[in-house]
Simulated assay, not measured.
Amino acid sequence: MKKLLAILMASAAAGLLLVAAPSAAQAATTGTITGIGGKCLDMTDGQSSNGTLVQIYDCNSTIAQQLTIGDDQSLQAQGKCLQVVNSSTDNGARVQLWDCNGSTNQKWGFSDFSDIVSISANKCLETSGGASDNRTPVDIWTCTGATNQKWTVHPGTTTTNPTDFPITEAQFNSLFPNRVATYSYQGLVSGAAKYPAFATTGDITTKKREIAAFLANVQHETGSLQYLRELNTANYPHYCDTSQPYGCPAGNDQYYGRGSLQLSWNYNYKAAGDSLGVDLLHNPDLVATDPTLAWGTGLWYWNTQSGATSVTPHNAMVNGNGFGATIRAINGGLECNGSNPDQMNARITNYKHIADVIGVSYGDNLSC
């Protein structure tokens, strides 16, 4: 990404950073910006509304981490501008998204020393407290040269564009108007980026059928995306397999169902966490609080696990086995072969409705 601004010098007497205006040749450029720990600047939960706070998060190739440095000294994400909350100049003031309005509070300078400086506050963008954990807040602070104030701009970083995703955000929102915020559309896109074959394999009909099948099963498991955790608390102590060599370090009652496909059992938390690069064995509740993981754990199962069958739900859809095979892979022992036709038919109803909304035919073999 081209350097838009150069901090030319510091005036020791005034304590001011002098910032040059970008040249006419320095057109707006888009990419990602990484800081301490190699984490990306990220819009919390992939949101784009006014007041969305900025944080750092594992780089995941989604538009929540795609930033544009404008030749007007703005720093933009998801159609909004980054600004300091309440136009504050105080150390520790948070940074948020807001409608671009040209105010000084939305101006940023990029130095040759890897600083990003708030023009209005004359302070450096930093990760709060020097932490590098996911979801560490971003704020401004007196420039000290510390590692948590250093940023690297990456030009033209490839991103997952939801316009290429088989379901649009508007369609998703219309299907799940009462969903909890953690089940965000951007979280779905971010989780899908972890499994590149998901909803990208085959022709557009196959792609749409797969996203419809996945969401239909998720809808059934989560009460239309209203529940992040298993409701029956009496079951909580039952999901610790003590025969596993790693045991249940978070507690024997901490591996109950969570997330989009209600991940349960300590061995599944470990396997899903290993796949996603997160220690879920020690931190299982991340599945109920982190949007990418709430979706990503379900997508881990969908793309890698076959349950009591010989085919994963992903392969079932892309190979033409039909929606019924996904039910069998997820809960076949309880719902297929006449065991519980009402539950099976509820999933089928979900699938048909979602397919209708996104405009795709159902295919064959809907039941199991």
Rank of each mutant, 00 (worst) to 15 (best):
G130T: 01
G37Q: 10
I56D: 10
P137C: 03
D71N: 15
L97P: 04
N161G: 06
C143Q: 03
R135H: 03
T104V: 09
V117S: 03
D133G: 11
G46E: 01
Q106F: 04
K39V: 05
I119L: 13
A28S: 15
D72E: 14
G145Y: 00
T127G: 06
N122T: 01
D99W: 04
T163H: 13
W108K: 07
T34S: 14
D72W: 09
G92A: 09
P137F: 09
T89E: 12
T89R: 11
G46K: 05
S128D: 13
T160P: 07
S23M: 05
D99M: 08
S111T: 11
M43H: 10
N60C: 12
L41W: 04
T34G: 08
S128Y: 09
A121I: 11
V138N: 05
S128N: 09
V153I: 12
N134M: 02
T163Q: 13
G38I: 03
G145T: 02
G46A: 06
E126R: 05
G51R: 09
D90C: 04
I119W: 04
G156T: 00
N91W: 06
T68Y: 13
T163P: 04
Q149H: 09
P137G: 05
S74Q: 12
T89Q: 12
C81Y: 07
C40L: 01
A131G: 11
G70Q: 07
D99S: 14
N122S: 10
V117A: 02
S111V: 06
Y57D: 10
D58W: 10
Q83V: 11
T147L: 14
D45L: 14
N50V: 12
I119G: 09
G156S: 13
C40I: 06
L82T: 08
D164L: 07
C59F: 07
E126T: 08
S132V: 03
I63L: 14
N60V: 10
D72R: 10
G130Q: 00
W98C: 02
W141G: 00
L75P: 05
D112N: 15
L125Q: 02
S118W: 00
L41R: 06
N101R: 02
W98D: 08
T34E: 12
A27S: 10
G130V: 00
Y57P: 01
S111C: 09
G130M: 00
V95W: 03
I69S: 09
C59S: 10
Q83A: 13
S120L: 02
F113D: 15
T157A: 15
A27F: 02
Y57A: 13
T89I: 12
C59G: 12
N148E: 00
Q26N: 11
L82E: 01
N148T: 00
G31S: 11
Q149R: 05
V117K: 06
V117N: 08
V117I: 15
T147F: 00
V95N: 05
D139N: 15
I69K: 15
K80C: 00
N91I: 04
S74R: 06
K150L: 14
L82C: 02
K123N: 04
S132R: 01
N161K: 11
G79M: 05
K107E: 11
G46M: 00
D45A: 13
D72T: 12
A131H: 01
